[in-house]
């Protein structure tokens, strides 16, 4: 497997030290890493899920809008950051792989490397209080 770009490596290392949940994907949308705080909300350890395609992770957590309607992948902040190359934010519901539904607030941003290279995107998310 080819080596990841150094910015992606450093992003993963930073995420592994931070106490807020972080989810990192490459420029094709493949899940590269989520950290321990994210494991708590997603309901499964990263080592158990491993790398996933965009199609997989964008549906496996069954995201739904505040009104309960299903959210298509293109409505997720991380997919917006990745595909439109702009920051995005949204509060929505997911069902973790432990079967628990959680309301989360997610802020996503594109990852731009030296020379303007598109390297992927990152989302930082928190469990949000009920309105």
């Amino acid at each position: 497997m080819p080596q990841k770009d150094v910015e992606v490596i450093l992003m993963r290392q930073l995420a592994s030290y931070l106490a807020m949940p972080i989810f990192l994907v490459d420029m094709a949308g493949n899940l590269l890493f989520y950290n321990e705080p994210a494991e708590t909300l997603l309901g499964r350890r990263y080592e158990e899920t491993g790398e996933m395609s965009l199609e997989e992770w964008s549906t496996i957590f069954k995201p739904t809008a505040e009104d309960g309607s299903p959210l298509p992948p293109e409505a997720l902040p991380l997919v917006i950051a990745l595909q439109k190359y702009q920051p995005a934010h949204r509060t929505f519901w997911i069902r973790g792989l432990d079967g628990i539904s959680r309301r989360i607030a997610a802020t996503a941003f594109p990852l731009e490397g030296q020379g303007g290279r598109h390297l992927g995107a990152v989302t930082i998310f928190w469990e949000a209080n009920h309105p």
Partner: peptide
């Protein structure tokens, strides 16, 4: 080795490896 919890880890996650 910066930030690596276990150095060396996976080759594809190691700066300069390629």
């Amino acid at each position: 080795a910066l930030g690596a919890h276990h150095f060396l880890g996976e080759a594809d996650w190691t700066s300069g490896f390629d």
